[in-house]
Design a protein around this nucleic acid. Structure first.
Ligand code: FES
Ligand code: FES
Lengths: 149, 149
DNA sequence: ATTAAATAGTACTAAACTAGTCCACAATAA
DNA sequence: TTATTGTGGACTAGTTTAGTACTATTTAAT
């Protein structure tokens, strides 16, 4: 169903929460309470986000997590990348090695283009954007006829 | 890893093959030989594509499958939809029911916007486009600053 | 009529992935 | 020293996916 994992979804919820006061420090405990996501799961996600350098952590009592940069500089693509690895719609967008038993394939490159467009789109959305209330007029700038040109 | 299933990938390969002579009829046997995808798997995919009305089938000896419409009218979104169901990055893009234990969530709507953009993009790419050799200059028309405005 | 070639539908299995939990360990504040 | 908090890794149960198999149905050719 072309979907993100639940953990990625949670991660955006968690980060949005933290972005509201983006200089503050948040203990996993507290994040769990505020978001309603179970504590062990929150903890797991926060650890992953630290490893991806999206968050920084402070250990010990009164410790917690903070955003490693301003919400404007954290993109949705970064978050997806942290939790799910590189964004690649098809195996071949990432490496052609895995597709060896598919002969007669004329389309790998085009998948790559689609993939790149989605990536660019996701890179253009930041945590700050996610917090904004939705504006109804969202004009799409891609016209069908110009897609591959 | 935000990826399409292998079957979807195969489906595009199969359809691209069939689109080369898009009035011709193809037996699953033959498609299997040409693409190198195992026959039972090809067969499974073709059945699904018929149910989605992307292909039509002719039963009996000398039967086979044909494109139900011209390659220009078959979009990548249709194919993904046939094999994986509705395109929805997060549960909430599809229905908010499943997310009830996430309190304090300000972002569902924005996911919906992102989702819609990806959908529009995938709807703008047709089978005919997939067959074209790639053009190097692919200007992306979405600017970061205007994403949510 | 009979046979062969082809799709339709469904069910099944094995493998891979995901979500969610848990625990022993390390760091720090009080 | 003790309580609090993050770190790292392991583990289990559940779900999803890929791939296969089998039976029934349809049609062309003979
Ligand atoms: S090389 Fe993988 S689908 Fe073509
Ligand atoms: S309602 Fe599902 S992530 Fe917000």
């Amino acid at each position: 169903m072309l979907k993100l994992s639940k953990l990625t979804d949670y991660a955006t919820v968690i980060l949005s929460h933290m972005a509201k006061d983006y200089l503050g420090m948040y203990a996993s405990q507290e994040v769990s309470e505020r978001t309603g996501i179970a504590q062990p799961t929150v903890s797991k996600i926060l650890k992953i986000l630290v490893k991806a350098k999206i968050l920084t952590s402070v250990r010990g009592a009164k410790g917690g997590y903070l955003l490693a940069s301003a919400p404007e500089n954290i993109t949705v693509a970064m978050v997806i990348n942290a939790l799910e690895g590189p964004i690649a719609l098809t195996e071949c967008s990432l490496s052609h090695k895995n597709c060896d038993h598919v002969r007669d394939c004329d389309i790998q490159g085009n998948w790559g283009v689609i993939n790149q467009k989605i990536l660019t789109m996701l890179e253009s959305v930041t945590l700050a954007d996610m917090l904004e209330p939705i504006k109804p007029a969202n004009e799409i700038r891609i016209s069908a006829s110009s897609f591959f040109r």
